[in-house]
């Protein structure tokens, strides 16, 4: 039986402990491809958030009507609809950002994080809980993209949100705005996270409880 979780856990789980990008390694394509500036990261994060939220609501609402044989195709159809809506809306409202994101908006369709939440959560839970879960996961996704975007924009352009932070003479590390920089950045982040986790575990084992020991309970 799926263990019952409280709404609070539904929300925070996706933000950090089961962060879709940093822990579950889902949705890596947009996380690597379009995070070369903070603005692009935010736009991609919000578009994905919108798609995830709307799809979760719809899937959860009709979860009893959708036969399991065609559930994947139905989910994809629903997701694709909202992706197209997001695509058109972005092009109409913020055409510059739309041009920068290019084909990757359409590729939200194949972001397995979204399909994963439908299959794993929205299709088995009530609408309010599905909304909470989608919000948590969406925020987690945005946080991960923002981390990537900040590092890459600061090193790759020497700016943050377009404001220069190193002065005009900064020599940009162009590799960080190219695709390899995406892999570098996520590698760095995962390295740091894992190192930190491991250190925490080692400390816990050594008997000196870290500050957040309560979070460390085994599942």
């Amino acid at each position: 039986m799926p263990r019952q979780t409280t709404p609070g856990q539904d929300l925070t789980r996706g933000i950090w402990r089961e962060n879709p990008v940093l822990i579950q390694m889902l949705g890596l394509c947009p996380a690597l491809a379009v995070t070369n500036t903070v603005v692009n990261s935010i736009a991609m994060g919000l578009a994905t958030f919108f798609v995830l939220l709307c799809s979760s609501i719809l899937v959860s609402t009709f979860r009893k009507l959708i036969p399991s044989e065609v559930r994947i195709s139905t989910y994809i159809l629903i997701i694709a609809t909202f992706v197209t809506i997001a695509d058109m809306t972005l092009e109409a409202v913020v055409p510059e950002v739309h041009k920068a994101l290019g084909a990757f908006i359409a590729l939200i369709v194949v972001n397995c994080m979204i399909l994963g939440r439908q299959e794993a959560f929205a299709s088995k839970n009530t609408v309010p809980r599905a909304i909470i879960d989608a919000v948590g996961t969406g925020i987690g996704f945005i946080i991960a993209l923002l981390m990537m975007g900040s590092i890459r924009e600061i090193l790759g352009y020497g700016t943050f949100l377009g404001f220069p932070i190193f002065g005009s003479n900064y020599e940009p590390w162009i590799v960080f705005i190219l695709p390899p920089g995406g892999f570098f950045t996520i590698g760095f982040i995962l390295l740091a996270l894992n190192w930190w986790e491991r250190r925490k575990l080692e400390r816990a084992r050594a008997g000196e409880p870290p500050a957040g020991a309560a979070v460390e309970r085994a599942a």
């Binding site: 039986m1 979780t5 856990q9 402990r17 579950q24 994963g116 088995k124 599942a219």
Partner: peptide, 14 residues
């Protein structure tokens, strides 16, 4: 990271 399976009983449905 042991909690990755929490509450998303997807693997248990089939």
């Amino acid at each position: 990271m042991s909690g990755a399976g929490d509450g998303n009983g997807g693997s248990r449905v089939l």
